[in-house]
Write a protein that binds this DNA or RNA. Structure first.
Lengths: 145, 145
DNA sequence: CTTAATGCTAGTGGTTTAGTAGGAATTGTT
DNA sequence: AACAATTCCTACTAAACCACTAGCATTAAG
């Protein structure tokens, strides 16, 4: 039931972009320095975030990334899913990719569906803005993070 | 965020033992035939369940396993944890094994704790008896499973 | 044209998953 | 006492996944 580093890092990247949002594009180099994640690894993460439409990106000199919408418009769920794929606890709940032939007779299906529901309800009711607020509580006067 | 086969199989084993409970010990061979899981793999799973005190086991001829308590006294959470280890979505929440030095400054800690809470609340309020009941609904008159 | 950035594809060492395999120990039956 | 059926224990393994690293192509500004 673990979330991978990509999921955890994606959250940190989004918080970082939200806190340092100036309207300009922010280079991965800067995020890397603040978050202690290599630029190369960040590339993969922001690629996923970008493909999901969560970021606007710009190549070339002075290029970088910025949020595509306001922090309160992102759910943590969509951020996590963009890099982790489905958060479903068992594969048979990923409707699109899988159709378990035993579904009809599966005794535990209801249990797994319920678990999937509570997880998704939680992550989809938590917004990036919530994380940003908590970040500001944590570092009361220090916005350098 | 996936549960491994061991976790899924452990649930099926426990349901199987509950449904076929006669007070006698049930051999892995029988569970294997009903659940389509090899005896060898079942051995590993019941070893974990046994070490957690969830099963009573008997070696030798006519040996096998049976539940250590009534189905309503098991939570699905304790069954899953006995084979999966902690269900925490991030390692830093596994108090015993880990003490993240960044915990104080971790911006996302509160979010992860909340997720851990909803997951554990769900699985710890679901009992083996609930699964058994649902199994009986699924196979109305067919208890051969 | 140079520089600084992202975009894309591939490689890689380590860990975990999902089993398999073999034999020792235990218990009931004959 | 021997045998058969079972669990117990340790080790092994192929495949997948994770957490990166690497190299080069592409793009944009100055």
């Amino acid at each position: 039931m673990k979330i991978s580093t990509k999921g955890r890092y994606a959250l940190r990247v989004m918080i970082d972009l939200a806190i340092h949002d100036t309207g300009e594009y922010i280079a991965l180099k800067d995020i890397s320095a603040r978050q202690n994640i290599t630029v190369k690894y960040l590339e993969q993460i922001v690629t996923n975030l970008g493909k999901a439409g969560l970021l606007r990106s710009m190549r070339g000199n002075n290029g970088g990334h910025r949020l595509a919408k306001r922090p309160e418009e992102y759910t943590v769920g969509e951020i996590l899913r963009s890099v982790e794929g489905s958060l479903a606890p068992v594969e048979c709940l990923q409707r699109d990719t899988n159709d378990c032939p035993r579904a009809e007779s599966c005794v535990t299906l209801k249990f797994w569906q319920g678990l999937d529901n509570v997880v998704n309800r939680y992550v989809d009711n938590y917004t990036l803005a919530d994380l940003v607020d908590e970040s500001k509580e944590t570092f009361e006067y220090d916005y350098s993070i």
